[in-house]
Computed example of a mutant assay.
Amino acid sequence: MLEIAAIITPIFLLIGVGFMAMRLSILSYEQMQGVGRFVLYIALPALLIRAITQNPLEEVFNVTYLLAYGLGSLGVFGLALGYTVMLKKQPLTTGSISALGMSVSNSAFSGYPVAVMIIGPPAANFLALNMLIENLLIIPLALILAEAGSQAGRGVMKSLQKTLKQLAKNPILIGLFIGVLIAITDIHLPKPVTQAIDMLATAAGPAALFAIGGTLYGLKIRGVMGEVSQIVTGKLVIHPLGVLICMWLIADNDALLTAGALLFASAPMASIYPLLGQRYGMGNVAAGTLMAGTLMSFVTISVIVGLMTYFDVLA
């Protein structure tokens, strides 16, 4: 257990540093947003370019991982949507945003920093795959359904077109495209360029954790504990379980794929979740969920890492 704590504690200490930087007014809200934008628009694309160009494409784009993690996430999304809309009789918009919170991890800001400390360089490959699943499948699906619910079934095609335009400007997907283009064409970048990319990629994990801590400062849970606890349970317990089942069925007991998938699935919900929730009238629920989910993930990730160690998944 002490070995697990030694791995997990530095991650949450960096989150705490970001929180205290805001608490002590070392950085302003706008400055902390700048750190987040640096991670999203510069460091993470550099990380993905490095991951894709340093390994053969057939190793990076692992079809087994894509299929297993994608089906696991999609299955949890479907279950959450059905539970919220059909059993709890909530609107489609509410169900879509709730399902999004349960099935999309904060892969870039939380999942990758944890995974790289535990499984090392392969974490960057898994990050690239998760970005594809989340940005091309789960998030667009949730937004289209939420938009359809808010418009009572009208304007679905318009929502789809708007979503596709946003995806085309997504810096993560642009980084993936550049990395694939370099790998396919076998372009040899000048050494100063590759060194700059390496430096930016190395900064992605620590800066992401710092930004998460700053984001948590000031978030409050106001009378929404029921909804928050439901989404947090779905994200930190049901999502990893769903992904584990699909990995067990599809990945043929591949220890590395299973470890990577579980570490990313056990991360809390995406940091953009409160922004999307606010857009559809769930601002307080989404903000409270992000705060509670991030804090609770300290416990759940520790448990999951402990179980993987016990069952020799991390051997």
Rank of each mutant, 00 (worst) to 15 (best):
W248Q: 07
K235I: 11
I212Y: 07
I11V: 15
L87N: 12
N62C: 02
L262S: 08
E30F: 00
H188K: 14
Y41F: 15
F38P: 01
G18R: 02
Q230A: 13
L164C: 03
L173W: 06
S73H: 08
L173Q: 04
V303W: 03
D254F: 06
L14P: 00
N135V: 01
T163N: 13
Q90V: 12
E134T: 13
E147V: 03
M269C: 10
D254K: 08
G277C: 07
G18N: 05
G72H: 07
S297I: 02
L160H: 02
T163M: 13
T84N: 13
T309P: 02
A146V: 04
A207P: 00
A148W: 06
A146E: 05
S73Y: 11
Q90E: 15
M157E: 03
P190K: 09
L141I: 10
M20C: 09
P171S: 10
I231E: 06
L40E: 06
G82N: 09
L276W: 04
H239A: 06
Q166H: 09
E227S: 12
G214R: 03
N55Y: 05
F126Y: 14
P206M: 05
S73P: 01
A315M: 06
K220F: 00
A124I: 03
G155R: 01
I221F: 09
S302R: 01
L136W: 01
G214L: 02
A204G: 11
V35E: 02
L164G: 03
A196W: 14
F77W: 14
I4T: 13
M269H: 01
G226C: 07
A148N: 00
I42S: 10
F77S: 10
T202D: 14
L181V: 14
M308Q: 05
A148S: 04
N284E: 15
E147P: 01
L24I: 01
G234R: 08
Q90K: 15
C246P: 00
Q278S: 14
L44V: 14
G223H: 08
Q195R: 13
G281R: 05
L127M: 15
L164I: 09
A251T: 09
V17F: 15
S28V: 04
I138V: 14
G155I: 07
G153R: 07
V114P: 00
S96Y: 12
I144T: 02
S103W: 13
G120R: 07
M102Q: 13
A115F: 04
Q90H: 15
I42F: 12
S266Q: 05
G223M: 08
Q166W: 01
F77R: 11
E147Q: 11
G95C: 13
A99M: 14
P192S: 09
V285R: 00
L189N: 10
A292D: 00
S105G: 12
P122D: 04
S297D: 02
L92Y: 14
A208T: 11
A286K: 04
A201D: 10
L47I: 11
D252T: 10
M157C: 02
F19H: 06
T215V: 05
N135Y: 08
P121C: 10
L257F: 01
C246D: 00
L262T: 02
A211K: 01
I231H: 06
L136R: 07
L47F: 10
K169A: 11
